[in-house]
Design a protein around this nucleic acid. Structure first.
Lengths: 162, 162
DNA sequence: GTCAGTGCAAACTTTTTGCAACTAC
DNA sequence: GTAGTTGCAAAAAGTTTGCACTGAC
């Protein structure tokens, strides 16, 4: 699915959500949604404001961004998350399901897909719980930090033995 | 493993970590660690301060709590997380691996263990990534909210058809 | 004795709130 | 026309920082 089609679908989803819940369809909301879906990866309110400023799309104020990120969260369009002590949001449309490699040293986050695990998780039937999405974080060290860690360990060992 | 034994092990882990990295063993650090490991579930700096106040253990200031939560995070003793827009910490000792049911409506968080999925995940071998822990969040509706949601859906449908 | 760590208060960042003006319905 | 939504600025909440003092090593 290309980005334009995704944007079309997600705009429709927002439109439906607003209509169903009796909220209003304001240009600010759709401009924000657009800014979010033009972004790759994790974003935060400040980044959205900066992006919209840079792209010279409709100007919205800080409070509106916060308000609507909350609304989008309720609508299931974004999810708030915390990785390596940094908070942020991710978009969620057709992306409710994801495996993520999180380096606990440098903070690098990599998406990853493992079909076997993916299916296993989605087949989990939980009593008294209706699953609508999931997210699996694998914590550890990326190759770079793994190498750095080994060097550091060696150094510490030398120091201890002195 | 009972709580006393867990506490003993985790104190040892902190002691080792401090020693190896050349940090000092202060009473504040161990009091904080104790407060964390006396807590069940998710906590935040404010809760720790309140708990320590209530239990009349060593009084520590806010900045010290923040400082040491950062240190404990680096030491792999706690992990910062975000669930339903609320940030918090979880303890990590012998608990690096966990499946969690998160109700996106009421925010209830339930621990859950599925051995099959657990093993599948731990058997995932990632190229260029050394996994030290993982966490799987299943998002959805708990039974209570599922029932409430159905009622609400029906009401909205009636309203639409009017 | 030295310097990392603490308490305290101030500063800074992030998020929420109150209110007047606006506009989607 | 009405009430939900926005912008703005002020307030609140959450976190970090600077500095003098303390105590772990």
């Amino acid at each position: 699915m290309d980005r334009a089609e995704e944007l079309r679908q997600v705009r429709q989803a927002l439109s439906d959500y607003l209509h169903i819940h009796g909220y209003r369809s304001t240009p600010e909301r759709f401009a924000l949604l657009e800014a979010i879906y033009m972004t790759d990866g994790i974003f935060n309110p400040e980044k959205l404001l900066a992006d919209m400023e840079a792209r010279k799309t409709l100007r919205v104020c800080r409070a509106t961004v916060y308000n609507n990120l909350g609304l989008f969260e309720d609508a299931g369009l974004v999810r708030k998350l915390m990785l390596n002590g940094e908070s942020g949001y991710e978009k969620l449309w057709h992306n409710q399901f994801g495996i993520r490699l999180v380096c606990t040293s440098c903070g690098k986050v990599t998406e990853c897909g493992d079909e076997k695990v993916r299916h296993q998780i989605e087949d989990m039937k939980k009593k008294r719980f209706t699953m609508t999405g999931w997210s699996l974080n694998l914590y550890g060290l990326c190759s770079k930090c793994q190498a750095a860690f080994k060097r550091k360990q060696k150094k510490l060992l030398d120091k201890t033995q002195k």
